[in-house]
């Protein structure tokens, strides 16, 4: 998948998530934004909603069912740590 397409999908997912968050805690559309980790703004429910929404959007883009929700993916150092790392992961893996 093109990197720009992967970034658009991640940003679309951020749009969905931000509608569940108070204005002061909304995720910035920036490669440095932390998704999973000590500085992250999402709680556990938010992270699961984020990943499942992302799965759905990536699935729509590639025309196949996609599996991203995995306990190992949701720890520090995983591709879900930041928006930039996640975008790279989706683009290179082709999800």
């Amino acid at each position: 998948m093109e990197h720009t397409e992967a970034l658009r999908i991640v940003y679309d997912t951020i749009d969905v998530m931000n509608r569940q968050l108070p204005a002061a805690r909304r995720l910035l559309k920036s490669p440095d934004t932390v998704i999973v980790g000590a500085d992250g703004l999402l709680d556990s429910l938010g992270i699961v909603n984020f990943v499942i929404t992302l799965e759905e959007k990536v699935g729509e883009a590639v025309g196949a069912t996609v599996q991203l929700l995995d306990d190992e993916m949701l720890v520090e150092g995983s591709p879900f740590q930041t928006v930039g790392a996640l975008t790279d992961y989706i683009a290179t893996r082709g999800a």
């Binding site: 509608r19 569940q20 429910l45 499942i52 929404t53």
Partner: peptide, 11 residues
């Protein structure tokens, strides 16, 4: 979503 969060309803 149901198995992970006990909510079957998507965003």
């Amino acid at each position: 979503l149901w198995y992970a969060t006990k909510s079957h309803v998507t965003p």
